[in-house]
Design a protein around this nucleic acid. Structure first.
Lengths: 343, 343
DNA sequence: TTGTAGGCGTTATCAA
DNA sequence: TTGATAACGCCTACAA
């Protein structure tokens, strides 16, 4: 029942605990034979050091935490490997902590900082209007990824990597307008969204205006409260609603790729075709977009570059090579099969 | 810099550390007013308890860990929420630990058990032929989910929830045979796979034999070493290879849904159609299968039931309500648009 | 090169 | 209801 500790190992080896500690931590000042003997005993008795005890003593753990808000978002998953490799290359270890929808990522970061003696934190997704007081509590470097920081004071205490959601959304909508679509529906986030969902909706709206089209509330579908926003299911329901209610439109812009897939399916289920009857566009540029049939027109966020830059900014901060920066990347409009130009 | 500890709080409040401890842990034997006073000071000074120290002292943490091997597998992600809710309902907390491809989940479980004083572990995915000696080291209850345990001794020390991969694979292949397909290609796992990949291949082979079809190695594509098995990319490449080499076949069975999507795309890119020119089937039953065009014929693993059962078995073990069990669930053949019967 | 001892921040067990 | 105090398992000066 009671598991073997460093003391047990020391006793079994007939040495002091400090010697065992030196052995497991690869300290230079230890006799090679002693070390080997100890390691052998450790192996035989299946000794595993207790990380809580280690973290408690340690002042520096050389680990970076990645906090992910929205674990169901495939876009984030696609970034994880890049983070991992980049951090490994900096000879740091790496833990992922999932943040639930209603959980406060800043509080979590603070807890983890203490528990694991972190060197730095990367926050993926999540809300972008944190109280500045709260942000100030984080003593170690951290960078927001995917989320631009809004408050002026917030910008001074952390770094961020993001795209300009409004601008990119504008870009996509503008393309649809220029392609001859006059009635462009949008599948938006929840009505009370104050994050990227809101920005993307604004971009859509502005592009319509600049192209001389009116903003028609009938063509805007918000996500209901009881469904996961940005999900395929939400996209399906939203498109079905438009179709069922016989709204007139020729293009449908879903603010996430997943929603776009759902929308495509709803259109097909209604006996219509994409893009012949309805053009459909998404946002994010996840891998599936290239494999889906029809392949999806979308805005691609440069995810690898963004992840790499986030890690770079973080280590610049850690090694005091620079102050806080807020990098904004440019998305790329990817034209594929799901949209067509109206003649 | 130096963060505030329980001692600081005690000093600020003019009480002993033990009293502060009682306050933050909601102990009954503490004056209500004292508690409120302490909590106020804690709030004001942003005190956050150190989890490493807590874990070190605590004997029982009421937390369950979920080890996920293969984080890129959407099927697993779809289970997470079910796990979370079920575990929350048992008034336990829940942490997710990602296990890398080449990492040993048993070793990780052992480390976590010590570090976090876990109550139990659920292992999702991963290898199914662990050394029994290793399995015996885990002192707390654990259940494998998705992975049937093979070794006889292994079966005696843990529980598991799984499907019969061979049988289900047989079921799908048999359907394709009965639907009139005589040349059925398969996109398999790596050649050296000894887990579900191997079982699914075996099921395919057996079904062919029982239907009087020969096993043609030309129609079997293994995943190369440098690519993620079970991935869309792998499916795409595998199907493309068959097509490029002008293999003759009318149906293609990919051993994961993701691979099937990749295969569909490769077929479309080659100017052919699914299912008119080639029937395509997958395995797992992930959500995307219903949204993809054409929607995907597949074997659906009853994921919610499996997750729920895993949690049930785990708590039965924790509360000693029963011994080790090995539940095998039945998959369901879902016929959708991607396959057709040959007349 | 090795051993001794103190302390990391908590919780738990006693007394008071 | 509270306060000392001893662990928890490990690391790290410092001493030997």
């Amino acid at each position: 029942m009671e598991s073997v500790t460093i003391k047990d190992v020391a006793r079994l080896c007939g040495v002091a605990v400090s010697t065992v500690s030196r052995a497991i931590n690869n300290h230079p000042d230890i006799n090679k034979e002693t070390r080997e003997m100890i390691m052998k005993v450790i192996e035989e008795h299946n000794y595993i050091p207790n990380n809580s005890a280690r973290n408690l003593k340690r002042t520096d753990s050389k680990t970076i935490a990645l906090l992910m808000k929205g674990i169901s978002n495939p876009f984030f998953h696609e970034m994880v490997e890049t983070f991992e490799q980049a951090i490994k290359q900096m000879r740091h270890s790496f833990i992922i902590q999932r943040v639930e929808e209603n959980e406060d990522e800043i509080l979590l970061a603070l807890e983890l900082e203490k528990e694991k003696k972190l060197r730095g934190v990367i926050i993926l997704g999540g809300f972008n209007e944190h109280g500045e007081e709260q942000l100030l509590q984080i003593k170690i470097p951290y960078v927001f990824c995917t989320t631009g920081i809004v408050g002026e004071l917030g910008r001074q205490v952390c770094s961020s990597v993001s795209i300009d959601d409004l601008q990119e959304s504008y870009k996509l909508t503008d393309y649809l307008c220029k392609a001859g679509h006059k009635k462009i529906a949008i599948l938006a986030a929840r009505k009370d969204d104050i994050s990227i969902g809101r920005q993307r909706l604004r971009g859509y709206r502005r592009a319509l205006a600049d192209n001389g089209l009116i903003y028609d509330e009938e063509l805007v579908v918000f996500a209901p409260q009881d469904i996961v926003p940005f999900s395929m299911e939400n996209g399906y329901n939203g498109a079905k609603k438009l179709l069922d209610e016989k709204k007139e439109f020729t293009a449908l812009y879903a603010i996430s790729d997943n929603m776009a897939f759902g929308a495509c399916r709803a259109i097909v289920d209604a006996g219509k075709r994409v893009p012949e009857d309805y053009s459909v566009a998404g946002f994010d540029g996840i891998d599936m977009g290239a494999y889906y049939c029809p392949s999806l027109t979308t805005i691609r966020q440069p995810r690898d570059e963004m992840a790499l830059e986030a890690v770079k900014l973080l280590f610049d901060l850690i090694y005091k090579r620079s102050g806080h920066e807020h990098k904004v990347f440019e998305g790329k409009l990817i034209l594929r099969e799901s949209t067509r130009e109206l003649s």
